[in-house]
Design a protein around this nucleic acid. Sequence first.
DNA 1: TTGAAAGCGCTAACAG
DNA 2: CTGTTAGCGCTTTCAA
Lengths: 343, 343
Amino acid sequence: MPSDDLENPNRPLTLKDVSEASGVSEMTVSRVLRNRGDVSEATREKVLEAAKSLGYVPNKIAGALASQRVNLVTVIIPSLKNLVFPEVLSGISEVLDDTPLQPVVGVTNYKPEREEKVLYEMLSWRPSGVIIAGLEHSDASRAMLTAAGIPIVEIMDSDGEPIDAMVGISHRRAGREMARAIVDAGYRKIGFLGTKMPLDHRARKRFEGFTEALAKAGLEIHDHEFYEGGSALLKGREMTEAILKRSPDLDFLYYSNDMIAAGGLLYCRDNGIEVPGRVGLAGFNGVELLDGLPVKLATMDACRAEIGREAAKIVAARAAGEEGGHERVVLTPTLQLGETLKR
Amino acid sequence: MPSDDLENPNRPLTLKDVSEASGVSEMTVSRVLRNRGDVSEATREKVLEAAKSLGYVPNKIAGALASQRVNLVTVIIPSLKNLVFPEVLSGISEVLDDTPLQPVVGVTNYKPEREEKVLYEMLSWRPSGVIIAGLEHSDASRAMLTAAGIPIVEIMDSDGEPIDAMVGISHRRAGREMARAIVDAGYRKIGFLGTKMPLDHRARKRFEGFTEALAKAGLEIHDHEFYEGGSALLKGREMTEAILKRSPDLDFLYYSNDMIAAGGLLYCRDNGIEVPGRVGLAGFNGVELLDGLPVKLATMDACRAEIGREAAKIVAARAAGEEGGHERVVLTPTLQLGETLKR
DNA sequence: TTGAAAGCGCTAACAG
DNA sequence: CTGTTAGCGCTTTCAA
């Protein structure tokens, strides 16, 4: 029991308590607990036993202040409800698990002002690095990131200029490639179905790349449909119904994500609309869910886990003291034609 | 620019820098930045401007050490890939957003030893509270939680004794209720399909409650199928095919989660197996995904967001100084019969 | 191999 | 309303 527990009987234990319990100086106790420097086996054991029996948990706050070192890596993503981000996170964890670093997640809900706030909160803990989704940030956010003096890795997107390092794919190119594949397959009346969210820059860039490539082939989006909130699968059904009723001559539907595409696919099957004969379908992301669908959906893998891993590697390397800066990793998503895009 | 930047030109700014830049004492600067105590409008503005123009970000590490206060709430969950947990998280955020508290998430991957490690790491930052999934923890984890001297809320489950507070549903009861509904509807040859994971205690308890209620009706599980890893939707399809091939006389399939149940439903529809005529189906959770399915699946709402909100409220109340301890909130999941459980 | 002293950057407590 | 003083619990640095 701590010696001066007269004051506050329920106070957390400190190094001093372990020091007194083991009869070893605080400094040596600290060394043992951190495996730093040489300590004789005898004292080491004494200390370890005392710490354990007391149930001592070191105070990282004090440690961090004294050592000016924090093994936290800030990870900022727009949402957890979109499976994509948990997958990026597992890529990150996979790599950081082999290091002393620990990821700490902040969620912005796609709102720049929230991003700013979360970033501020997180940076005030002086993390060893930041991994943040997207290349678009408010001026204030950019200023904070620039001034932080730690590795900053912007992920998911490569269409733009990063503050420091960048790991992602080109969504513009992804949109272009899909457009080309669709046109090459002979489809001509193409509809687009996507999210209304004006702040999902990656979806926007895919759309831009898509229309750009269509234009090159002398085509235009023939009709479109946007949604907001709710169950993506259900929205996919509803939007598909709406767009096909309005424009029955459409021969292809490009969805901005796999979840709504899956909804569209189920709608078509339930309503005797032949895919890909009557209408072709394609989504984006390559989510695991698709494996369970009756038909393989055309999509494009967004390299989520890989992006997480590469980003984590960059942070880990620099935290370990390696020189670096402005790394650029551009991954290439693979087009999977599936069974919903062909003639 | 900081005055003593000769030493380290890229050092993060401190209160002292703001103090010097504004000509106000460190203490008053601190007061302004925290909105504490009375400060004249004049000095307040001077300080704010200096802080802003320098781009000062307070060091929470030092602040926390000095004030012995950390507005972090540790949230420990088994996984992020199961949509259930992000939903709990949003319930938590919803409530904490109106407080100075901030959630910090740790993931255990359903492994007790990982839980122990994550818990240790998190507790060493001296958070204001812990929200942790489940009532089953290793001895070491229990010891840490007990010794932490902060509010501990165990969530999701109410079948057991919490260390401190508890917010959840009874999974045993959920299993019993579903069994009763199935038996009442006239089904007799019942199959169970679930996860192999022996450490998903809540799934286990539902299973136990389920078989218990069947027994009371003089019935037994007629066949079962377990899976591990992979796409849940796909596994649902595969398991359903396997179990129906092996035991064609089954008239009901109870799945341990909605995702595999959805896979089963799609399988049945694709293979002309009439639901609920030929075979009835039920899942568990009430995931949003179900809204997009062709047929409404029988399920049970697990009250995820509500659980998150209640847990956060308990932590927030105690962090705000309210007395408390051993709160128990037992929510009642509602059975949704849908269209896959009836005759 | 061990220990003593001096902070890390901030805030509590008190004094003006 | 503002400033001074003394730590918070640990690690760095230096000396023994």
